[in-house]
Design a protein around this nucleic acid. Sequence first.
DNA 1: GTTCCACCGGAAACGGGGGAAC
DNA 2: GTTCCCCCGTTTCCGGTGGAAC
Length: 333
Amino acid sequence: MITEARVLQAEFSPKELEHREQEVDVLSNALDPIMAGHPAETTLIFGPSGAGKTCIARFTVGRLQEAVEEINQQYVNCWEDYTRFRVLYRILEGIGRAADVHRQSTPRDELLERLRQYDGPQYVVILDEVDQLEDRRVLYDLYRIRNISMVLITNREAELFAQMDERLTSRFRSAVRIQFERYTLDELVSILSARARWGLTAGAVERRHLALIADAAAGDARVAIGILRNAAHRASRRGVDEISMDIVHKSIPDGKDEVRQKTIEQFTDHQRILYGVLTEAGEIRPGDLYDRYCERVDNPKTRRTIRNYLSKMDHYKLVVSDGNGRNRTYRPR
DNA sequence: GTTCCACCGGAAACGGGGGAAC
DNA sequence: GTTCCCCCGTTTCCGGTGGAAC
């Protein structure tokens, strides 16, 4: 049934993009000065997850690179590379200047200095999940480096600006802003049907089944593609050549749960135990949560560290908090 | 209105780990 | 082997917040 597995991955970047022509145009215009050898305007892309922000940024920059051979580009996920060091390292990596950088022995400012000395072709850096940066001042540093253009992506615009000082805010308030909305049901169906066309045998899935998947994904393309992938795998395992309504129904929870499972796999033992306590309890006050966590581990982390864990889990959409002060409770999402 | 209390999250310090230089 | 240096997860400290109790 599956003829091209990679197109069923959310990260797959198709040659043609649907439903985001206007956003692509705005970003292309912002990047336009690069065609003439000048830095592009700083661009800020924001909107909910699964709305195509990353996909459109990579697609547009990729297309620019095809048009102008002499440019460099690098994608940095600030969720994974959230320290100043890691961000600068990734950016140096994009121009092949990171090979001899060592985490432990390279002086603090050596990385920035190397970037400052960069005098190669225009360099476009996509900083995804930029609100996750630990130290936003690195944005100011990058802003001042010639020949580097930034495309910033965030789904929490308010949080991005909340922790910036005046100097940074004034720079980025004037950035080109592109707002993404959730995909509509029809748009998602059309995206899914393209993926099915490229990645599955003909007639493997009916449109009404895609509509059901799209409905379950609630505007999130990543979730929708995940459900379709799960359904295709399930059908293959059953040895059938068509995705039935029953398969779709069974695949929806798995598709939704996939992201969660991937996240939990990356947790440390302490984080996993904490999450376990939370899911068992259903809803629990912070003090009780901490006590129960302590009962299950030999050397418990401090309350402060647990708060950091919980805030990470909140960002991963694994945990919700309700209420304030002494009425605060946590529950699994 | 005031005080108490549980909780939150920023900032700075600490310390383990590990590569480089000697 | 020792020292130096840096990253980064964690801890410590502490001011702020908001609901409950008085």
